[in-house]
């Protein structure tokens, strides 16, 4: 190669290098879906697929107890009140529990919201199964209305021994802007 005094190869090398550049630029964007997939599989970063788990058929492991804590917050600019009925519950792995979350819409307009969960430590998200949860769906709430939203869950008995506390955090996001006016108008008014 060193013998070639002309530059017959330059164009080919430049073309390949430019292709690499374009490929790496695309790779930067490909990291976005890859990151989601990676987080879903590993529970990395406390995110997890928020799908409905099968009903609990596990045997309860009464030899240990795990403290499950609940944290709620609303996104910046979101006017709702949103809090868990209890701040924490102690459960045996395999045992099914129901916890209510209270929400109210203090504004004068109908609104739709969506709660997004996050679990710490991230590893625990793989073992926290929800049979039923308000977070599976969007929550419509009429002006001035309040509601109690149930969340039914159990911890997989496979949960590692070194996990003694699991924190489940919900952030409530305002989805009203994405809703059609008809859908908003259809929200049932509170019964006083």
């Amino acid at each position: 190669m060193a013998e070639q005094q002309g530059k017959p190869d330059n164009t080919r090398i430049v073309r390949r290098l430019l292709l690499t550049v374009v490929g790496m630029f695309a790779f930067g964007f490909a990291l976005v879906p890859l990151y989601d997939v990676f987080c879903d599989i590993t529970g990395f970063n406390g995110r997890f697929t928020d799908g409905q788990a099968a009903a609990n058929t596990k045997t309860v492991d009464t030899s240990r107890t795990v403290n499950v804590q609940f944290i709620t917050r609303v996104n910046k600019g979101m006017p709702w009140g949103f809090e868990p009925e209890v701040n924490s519950v102690r459960v045996h792995p395999g045992e099914t529990k129901v916890v209510n979350f209270l929400a109210n819409n203090p504004t004068g307009g109908n609104m739709i919201a969506q709660a997004i969960p996050s679990v710490a430590p991230g590893e625990a998200s793989l073992y926290l199964n929800k049979v039923e949860c308000f977070c599976f769906n969007q929550q419509p709430l009429a002006a001035g209305a309040k509601t109690a939203m149930p969340m039914q869950f159990y911890l997989d008995p496979e949960i590692p021994d070194d996990i003694h506390t699991v924190t489940l955090s919900y952030t409530m996001y305002d989805m009203t802007e994405n809703a059609t006016p008809d859908a908003l108008a259809a929200i049932a008014q509170p019964v006083n």
């Binding site: 290098l17 690499t20 550049v21 374009v22 490929g23 790496m24 630029f25 790779f27 930067g28 964007f29 990291l31 976005v32």
Partner: peptide, 25 residues
């Protein structure tokens, strides 16, 4: 440089579209 400068370009582009064009990366 060839491997990572394009990734930086991607990152600043995402910041740009998040800030000005309503994306949510």
């Amino acid at each position: 440089l060839i491997a990572v400068m394009p990734v930086l370009a991607g990152a600043v582009t995402m910041v740009l579209t998040d800030k000005y064009f309503g994306t949510s990366f």
